[in-house]
């Protein structure tokens, strides 16, 4: 009888252990399927994570926002309202501390406020793009080279947005997914 109780409790634990990653999967899939795509111009570098492997760290051009407001706290939650510009890239229209009513916004964190330039630096919750470990370093090199090309806006990240949640789908160099681009 006692074994049965322990087993029932264990089944509850199993459910919790399965629930956490499943719920992560469903949330992300939902945003990818029903969210709206935005292109973020990038400048990646290549580090490594002990559990998740190699990734490229993405620096977005949209991570600075000019504002005269100086009351930002480090690591504070903020809502970044965005829209598409004429070329389909993202444009930040407003950064607020309360959830905005607009359709497209991202929940992000404050990095720091540059008082000299009067610029707010934002950390987006999609600044890492995980890659095959053999490709991550080449991706970094390829990206650096592409940045030096004369064509403007040639590297960007494709991000899906829904109700403040954002999922990074892929990174493109000259309209080719970065993993494919590296293989060439």
């Amino acid at each position: 009888m006692k074994t049965l109780y322990i087993f029932i409790l264990f089944i509850i634990v199993v459910c919790a252990q399965l629930f956490v990653p499943s719920q992560m999967v469903f949330q992300q899939e939902d945003v990818l399927k029903t969210g709206t795509a935005f292109k973020f111009k990038t400048q990646p570098v290549d580090p490594s994570d002990p559990f998740k492997g190699k990734y490229i760290f993405l620096n977005y051009e949209a991570s600075t926002f000019s504002t005269a407001d100086t009351t930002w706290q480090r690591n504070e939650d903020v809502y970044v309202t965005i829209k598409h510009d004429s070329l389909g890239f993202v444009q930040v229209t407003e950064v607020t501390k309360n959830e905005p009513k607009s359709e497209f916004y991202i929940k992000a964190k404050v990095d720091w406020y540059n008082e000299f330039e009067k610029e707010l630096n934002i950390v987006y919750p999609f600044n890492k793009f995980y890659m095959d470990e053999t490709k991550a370093y080449n991706a970094e090199l390829a990206h650096m080279k592409a940045q030096q090309d004369s064509i403007p806006n040639n590297t960007y990240a494709l991000v899906f947005i829904k109700n403040g949640k954002a999922v990074l789908d892929n990174v493109f160099i000259n309209e080719i997914p970065i993993a494919k681009y590296v293989e060439k």
Partner: peptide, 27 residues
């Protein structure tokens, strides 16, 4: 720990180390 971090990897969720460890420990 492996399954949580792999799902995070597949969907490019950066997360932070301490909240990841906390979830892992509690589970």
């Amino acid at each position: 720990g492996a399954s949580i971090s792999l799902v995070a990897q597949i969907y490019n969720i950066p997360g932070n180390m301490s909240s990841f460890l906390l979830t892992w420990i509690l589970l």
